[in-house]
Write a protein that binds this DNA or RNA. Structure first.
Lengths: 336, 336
DNA sequence: GACAAAATAGTAAACACTTACTTTCACATT
DNA sequence: AATGTGAAAGTAAGTGTTTACTATTTTGTC
């Protein structure tokens, strides 16, 4: 095989060094600190680097230092707008700090979560931002063995592996339910989808508020993902099961908006006939007509904070607070 | 320093081998194919692996084979819902195939794009999915030197580096504008934000359609990101500059929805007084009242296809089609 | 019970870079 | 002129795994 037949591989430090006529060590030095190399060599090396289009290879460094300058981000889903906003917050901090984001999701499956974490660790990520609050023993062991900082996001209550940053979903759901009751609603139905940990916390908050006010909770559940359509479907179900329903509290804005539009289409007046509240406070719910009542949560800030605390710990600082409980906000909008 | 003082590092193959009393090669063999190891050893190795919580390290493999099983995904922004859907499509395909996603974004800056691509390449990504159609010489050289498959997504027209998958943004904008004109609109204003390549293509399509029908285009532009609020602001500007405006075509659904709600608030009837059309056809626009007219684009499919074609090329197949032009769809909704 | 074949396990090298140490040489000081 | 100093560049080793080869043991056959 002639050399012209060979698939040319990406140039290494050695290739650059050969071109200049020095050892790769000299080129390496130039790369980290040009002044460590004599002036005449500086320009020759710079030219050679440019000529060959040299791009450093992190693999040796990852191998010898077990540091990748990459952060693993593991979320249950990418479908949900909430997570897109969390990712944005994370990237906002990580990218300027020179860290690369490795993204993975596990579709709410525990086995998939184990597999994804193993994969992320196999790349020697320097830290991990994960979601959900329950983790298998295997996951806990892997994280312990890996010895890297881990931050759990989304909920602030359950005892964290090391550090959790999120909101108190149960308290938030309680607060909104209570708010609706104070506004005179009695037969409030909860719409739940995707029965993950956070949804379970919210249901608990809703049910507590109902009970504390002597009311009977009714919760519609499904394991499928939420959507506008599902909100409309749930509305029909709710009215069938409890015709005098006067309030609807949804596990997220999507369901709420779907239910609201379904009301508009079938002539049900919001909020006169039925109050509707969502959860999260996405842009759309704060622009639409009528303005959606919702629990405003700091999604992007949650991502930012998680990344910031992770970076702080990578710099050697200890865990400052085990649980960082971010404030939520009840927004009455015009639909209650 | 006593051994108990030392920070324990994550176990290696050698640690497992020592525990069992074999060489690391035997453990390595067990990992890839347990049958290559004698039956008694199989269980002993399995136990040791479990005991130590061994997690494979990809760094040596990346180093010696220059293959990471990771794919770099570089998008202009994470703010936009469009990109969240594209990422979802990509992950849907990549994850089951055993590829890890490395996500980066560059905020529409050319210098940042160069830097991000260099970073992704430094991790020896096996392939790259990037957006936008214009790239600097430096970027082109880096990609050439890297010698990995590259797929450009979002637009289908401009000559691709290797392979492009997207829609014909110019044709789509032409089609929608023409549709609005056929429905009797004459004074159609275009709302543009974030002046990236695709927006420029869409403006071109809009202007062509207006000219071809003997009408005068009016385009409101800004470099900031689009939002519902911006849609409302643009509406005011449009009515000021051209009080008899009877149509609004927005570069995305966000602007359109913002404009539509602003109309509702100020008593302007849609579509009787003004027609409004968006671009992309997000879930919300297909659920709201009135249904938004929009150009439905296959965002998720675009991501899926890009990932599929990338995988096919990683399996050694040549580029099948240089440009894959995905169909768009004009959805009349109820706002035209 | 001898010999070949097959199964099983071991050894060494390679991957690209950096750290830590060593060598070389120019120049200043005595 | 001998010695010391410091800048500049070189050398060797190590990082964890796999590939390719080699050695050893077991099995099967006659």
């Amino acid at each position: 095989m002639k050399s012209s037949d060979m698939k040319k591989k990406r140039p290494t430090l050695q290739d650059v060094a050969d071109l200049v006529g020095v050892t790769k060590m000299t080129v390496s030095r130039f790369l980290r600190n040009p002044d460590q190399v004599s002036v005449p060599l500086q320009s020759k090396i710079a030219d050679a680097l440019e000529d060959l289009g040299y791009i450093p290879n992190r693999a040796p460094d990852i191998l010898s230092k077990s540091k990748s300058h990459a952060i693993g981000v593991l979320l249950p889903s990418l479908t949900n707008q909430v997570f897109a906003e969390v990712i944005r917050g994370i990237e906002t901090v990580l990218e300027p700090a020179g860290y690369q984001t490795m993204l993975a999701h596990y579709g709410y499956s525990k086995e998939a979560e184990e597999a994804r974490i193993a994969t992320l660790l196999s790349y020697s990520v320097d830290g991990l931002i994960i979601s959900e609050s329950y983790h298998t023993e295997r996951v806990r062991k892997m994280l312990a063995v890996a010895g890297i900082p881990v931050i759990e996001i989304m909920d602030s209550v359950s005892p964290p592996i090391e550090q959790a940053i999120g909101i108190d979903n149960e308290a938030a759901a309680y607060a909104m339910t209570d708010f609706m009751i104070k506004r005179g609603r009695q037969k409030i139905v909860y719409f739940a989808a995707r029965m993950d940990q956070r949804t379970l916390f919210k249901i608990k908050g809703y049910e507590s508020a109902m009970h504390d006010n002597g009311l009977t909770p009714l919760c519609l559940k499904t394991n499928s993902a939420s959507s506008f359509t599902l909100g409309a479907t749930f509305l029909k179900d709710a009215l069938q099961q409890q015709p005098d329903t006067d309030g609807i509290f949804c596990t997220n804005d999507d369901l709420a908006i779907g239910a609201l539009y379904a009301c508009q289409k079938s002539g049900i007046k919001v909020p006169d006939d039925i109050s509707i509240a969502g959860f999260h406070g996405h842009d759309i719910s704060r622009a639409m007509v009528p303005l959606l009542a919702t629990v405003i949560t700091p999604r992007e800030e949650m991502g930012r904070l998680a990344a910031e605390h992770l970076l702080s710990r990578l710099q050697g600082h200890p865990v400052s607070e085990k649980i960082i409980d971010l404030p939520f906000q009840i927004e009455a909008g015009e639909s209650i």
